[in-house]
Nucleic acid binder design. Structure first.
Lengths: 104, 104
DNA sequence: CAGGAAACTCTACATATATAGATTTTACTT
DNA sequence: AAGTAAAATCTATATATGTAGAGTTTCCTG
């Protein structure tokens, strides 16, 4: 399996998951928070799940309540988010040296 | 529990179920076939279920497929539909005598 | 770097279930 | 029959998930 492309939109989604690494989140909620359209978001979620960065689950809330398709970071997903953070910091350091921590 | 009101729309729905008394049907399908709007249809289904004329079930079709809320006639529902049919025939007979079965 | 293939995004639409609140219909009571 | 209370319908909107297909971006290879 080819490795996934970490577009800006995909990173946005991963970052939202990284805020609460243990929680199950569902599409509509994510679409409100990231302001990604469903036609962008759902394919991203499916790709992330296919690459096992997210695991999925249909949540049964109750009798009259339609089940929700929920997603959560796998440990592989958590690792990826962490290393992406490191990479982002490094790149930032290269391009804009010492905005924070420079001489007073 | 007060007995349910058998409006024209409710009878339409019951009749559709009576066409296939053993099958589970779901809302969207019924809304296309009866041309009832979802805002009319879903409350009818919920009322019929509340009165135990229909039983309900969330159908899990598969991994990528959202579950559907399906409904089916209970035996009580089947009885009611049958007796409604008899009642309708009687009323018809009273009002329009012998359109079918008259003398040749 | 140019060209093409694959991956991805975006717009639009389809599928699916449900609720809020205004209006209408029905049933009950006098 | 008129009043009224309850029940049902209807319009509009929200919630929720997904796909098709056009267009764009990215990656890879010569």
């Amino acid at each position: 399996m080819k490795s996934i492309r970490l577009s800006q939109q995909t990173l946005q989604v991963l970052d939202r998951f990284a805020m609460e690494p243990a929680s199950w989140l569902y599409g509509y909620e994510l679409s409100r928070e990231t302001e990604l359209k469903s036609g962008t978001l759902y394919p991203i979620l499916m790709r992330l799940a296919k690459h096992q960065l997210l695991e999925t689950h249909w949540e049964h809330a109750g009798e009259g309540v339609p089940p929700r398709h929920t997603y959560r970071l796998t440990s592989k997903g958590i690792d990826l988010v962490k290393s992406e953070r490191v990479a982002a910091r490094k790149q930032l350091a290269t391009r804009k040296p010492a905005t924070a921590g420079g001489r007073a």
